[in-house]
Amino acid sequence: MTSGEANRVTRRSFIGWFTLLLGAIPAIGATAVGAVSIVGSVFRRAANGAQRFARVGVVREFKMGSYRRVELCGGGADAWRRDAARVEGAAYVRLESGGSFTAFSTRCPHLGCEVAIDDAGRAFRCPCHGSEFDASGKRKRDSAGKIIGPAPRDLDPLAVRIASTGEASQNGSPPQQVVEVEVATFQTGTSSRKRI
């Protein structure tokens, strides 16, 4: 092979690759921009990083000992939307003897089905794969001491706070004491509890 011939070969293959590159740039460029735009959601922080609460009722509506199911309207933003009436989840709430409140997310920590409550309002059972939880949200065990059902952790507790409506009503009665429950969702299927 003479050096002139070798030169021609490399030159030709260089132009060949360059041609392919030029032809592919539009498709590659557009795909790259588009791919970044959809992958970006992984890195976008949730719009509402701060702890949020939803008002669920006045204090005296809650009974001691048995749980009541309430819906949570946190008024949170959903991408471009803000809808104060959007229901973001539900909770089981009860009044404790000391005057404090306990609340659990209704989502099963296994894979997120809604756990059902028994008629007395004191124990929970998940209809999907049969996990059972007692009144304190702990997983129940069978007579052999084995945990019933596949849930990897106990029910997820939600923070509760008491607030005052602030304004006296028109007939002069004092401001109401209202119960507010935290709006939160948790990673399912893990033994550790992680907020998402």
Partner: peptide, 8 residues
């Protein structure tokens, strides 16, 4: 809000 959304 979307990364490269404006460009897309």
């Amino acid at each position: 809000k979307v990364a490269l959304g404006r460009e897309l």
